[in-house]
Simulated scan of single mutants.
Amino acid sequence: MKIEISEVANLPTKYGNFKIQSFKEGIKEHLVIFKEPLSDNPIVRIHSECLTGDTIGSLKCDCGDQLTTALHTINENTGMIIYLRQEGRDIGLLNKVNAYALQDKGLNTVEANHQLGFAADQRHYEVVETILAHFNITSIRLLTNNPQKIASLKNVTITERIPIIIKSNKYNDKYLKTKKDEMGHLF
């Protein structure tokens, strides 16, 4: 896999002062947000892009709250967020909005993806190991509820899974239940 890597830059935010570096994989440009010094066994959050949740504050998912929690956690403990450009479980923004419309009609998130001809989750995580190797990281404490992320890391030791629990609301309660019951998320 050919990866282009940017320089490291400072990123002061309302959550703390971080460093950023971009990793370009084909047409996808992923971002690593990290707080130094990186330990031998840092906290790592693998976060897939969610424009509606991360940027607009959608209440239909828990993505924005997970990102905010991860930023606070990394700021307090050091570590990194690997922000993957895989919008809508990698079905893209247009299809994600179509999936939202199907959910408005009563389908859950998995059923909506299937109705549109997609798998429940089309994301892949191969680039994560490349990114971790770039930072000479061989073991991590993974901030996740997603068993697919855990299973995807073959060449990295996960010494601890740190749950990321977000309080549900009336708009995402069914979504979170589907993630747990049908996708095996560990809440």
Rank of each mutant, 00 (worst) to 15 (best):
F23E: 06
T13S: 14
N95D: 14
I158S: 00
P12A: 02
S6D: 04
K105H: 03
Q66A: 08
M1V: 12
I91Y: 06
Q86C: 13
T144K: 03
S22D: 04
L186F: 08
A70G: 13
G79H: 10
G64I: 08
E76L: 13
K28W: 10
H185P: 12
N136K: 14
L116K: 09
A133P: 02
N17F: 08
R45N: 00
N146W: 05
D173S: 15
S58P: 01
I166Y: 05
C63M: 02
T130Q: 14
Y125V: 10
G26M: 06
I164R: 11
L186I: 15
L132S: 00
I74S: 12
I162A: 04
Y175A: 04
G184S: 09
I43L: 13
H72V: 14
G117L: 09
N146K: 11
E182V: 03
Q21N: 11
F118D: 04
G16A: 05
T130G: 05
L132R: 01
P147E: 07
P12V: 04
P147Y: 07
K96N: 05
N10T: 14
D54I: 09
N155K: 15
T13C: 08
H114A: 11
Y100R: 03
H114F: 04
E25M: 02
I3P: 03
L132E: 01
T68V: 11
K180G: 04
F18N: 10
V156L: 02
E29M: 09
A120C: 01
L51P: 03
L59N: 12
N136L: 02
M1D: 08
H124M: 08
K14W: 06
A120L: 01
E76Q: 15
R45S: 00
E25W: 04
T73F: 07
I46Q: 08
G106N: 11
Y83L: 06
K2S: 12
I33D: 01
G92M: 05
V8E: 15
H124W: 01
N41E: 13
S58M: 03
D54C: 11
G57V: 10
I33C: 02
K174V: 10
I46F: 09
K2P: 11
Q103C: 12
I5C: 15
V44S: 01
R45P: 00
N41V: 01
V127A: 14
E129A: 06
S22E: 13
G184Y: 05
Q122P: 11
T144H: 01
K167D: 12
K167Q: 14
E129Q: 03
T52S: 12
A151C: 12
L71V: 00
L142Y: 12
S58Q: 03
G79E: 10
D90K: 09
H124I: 05
S48F: 03
T109Y: 03
G16L: 00
M80C: 05
E126V: 02
I27Y: 14
V44Y: 04
T69P: 01
L132Q: 03
L71T: 05
I81P: 00
Y15P: 10
G26C: 08
T13V: 07
Q103D: 04
Q86M: 14
N169L: 00
I140Q: 09
S6Y: 02
G26V: 03
T159Y: 15
P42F: 02
I74A: 13
H30S: 06
Q103I: 08
